[in-house]
Design a protein around this nucleic acid. Sequence first.
DNA 1: CGAATAACTTAACCTTGGTTAAGTATAGAC
DNA 2: GTCTATACTTAACCAAGGTTAAGTTATTCG
Lengths: 227, 227
Amino acid sequence: MSRATLLLGAAVEDYLKSIYKLSLENERVTPKMVAAEQGVSLAAVSKMVKRLCEQKLVRYDRGEGIDLSPPGRKVALEIVRHHRLIEAYLCEALGYSWDEVDEEAEKLEHVISEEFEDRIDRLLGHPTHDPHGAPIPTKDGEVDHRDHPALSEFDSGRVVVQRVNDHDPAMLRYLGDCGLYPGVSVDVLGEEPFGGPIHIRVAGEEISIGKELATHVFVEVAEEGKK
Amino acid sequence: MSRATLLLGAAVEDYLKSIYKLSLENERVTPKMVAAEQGVSLAAVSKMVKRLCEQKLVRYDRGEGIDLSPPGRKVALEIVRHHRLIEAYLCEALGYSWDEVDEEAEKLEHVISEEFEDRIDRLLGHPTHDPHGAPIPTKDGEVDHRDHPALSEFDSGRVVVQRVNDHDPAMLRYLGDCGLYPGVSVDVLGEEPFGGPIHIRVAGEEISIGKELATHVFVEVAEEGKK
DNA sequence: CGAATAACTTAACCTTGGTTAAGTATAGAC
DNA sequence: GTCTATACTTAACCAAGGTTAAGTTATTCG
């Protein structure tokens, strides 16, 4: 069984991963979205989706969109688990900064063995989240599905950063400069009108960040009790 | 430049690596040897060799055999460096045993970035040899080329294990049981006639190992001076 | 309703890396 | 010197994964 999944090409794994990700953000996943996500032509997606259907990894209907089948979802989650574990490992064990890990993990995720997966998992103490705050699926395919509101939706109060968008290294570097890491408390002080910047306090420092940037930072209202 | 090498498929890298390895053990590298090493048909090698010639990565002449060009050699050594660094890393940092590392390194060697290579190299303190005693090429393609005589060629005296053959995990486990790791001193006590076993002392224990096995353990005469 | 546009599919083609089967070269035996 | 086994090459094919170009569906606009 794990035999079969190992024979899947890296491309197949990437498609399934993209479909999984897109299905979290949209309730209909279209070929066009997959093409954009994967950076390939629509024709390539069309052909691949047909193959994935034949292998029963997805179901597809022009009305319904593309849906992962249970086995397809399992593969996707396995790859996501690899990806996020590797990201965590690269940061913690090899001193990578959080804007460098995605690219490396993108390649490693397809080739590591279960042995490798287990060893880094154990070494890290079974981490639950990657360096950007994304949940790491468990080996049996469970994953914490809460999604948090964006920082851009708050105009006052104290929140705690839960996750940041991880796909633009430059943005990650900037967020790092701002100290906006998962787990960090942020006081939202106010916001300028007409899409203006949001004023926040992070680690005692008052800074302003663009509304657009704030849509990429996901937070949770801070628990009461600590100043 | 590193651009170009990154675009090489994993298969191309594997062929170059095989040709490199074979060129150390034979002064003529034939398509047949490459086919055996890579586990593919002779036809596949024929075709690939033609392509490698077009890309100026090897030269080929039926009389001369296959030879790496300077750029081909550079790619080969880069992959060998990756392979051996990864093996060392897996042992030292992730607790792999030396019989497990080859398989994992075989896949990782093609996908790691220069960043990854540099980080593990630094973390290990710029190791010069992999866990089996094979030399790790430097970044600029230099490699320690001494080859050591096999243990099977000795029938008395004290030697130090330098390197062991790394391709059979079961043999590696057995060698591990015998304590025959690189760096270990061995007293050769004698050998039975007609290809019989060799009697040795390792770490105080007297054991006998088959002649065949002894051809896979490469040693150096021990320096005088320490009992 | 019909036409324009966006989304998708199909077809024809490319490259990489493999296969088997059939043909050619070459070296050694006689 | 020819015969034959071994080594090698070529040809025809396959599958994965991509491309562009040319249809086809569907939706939306007027």
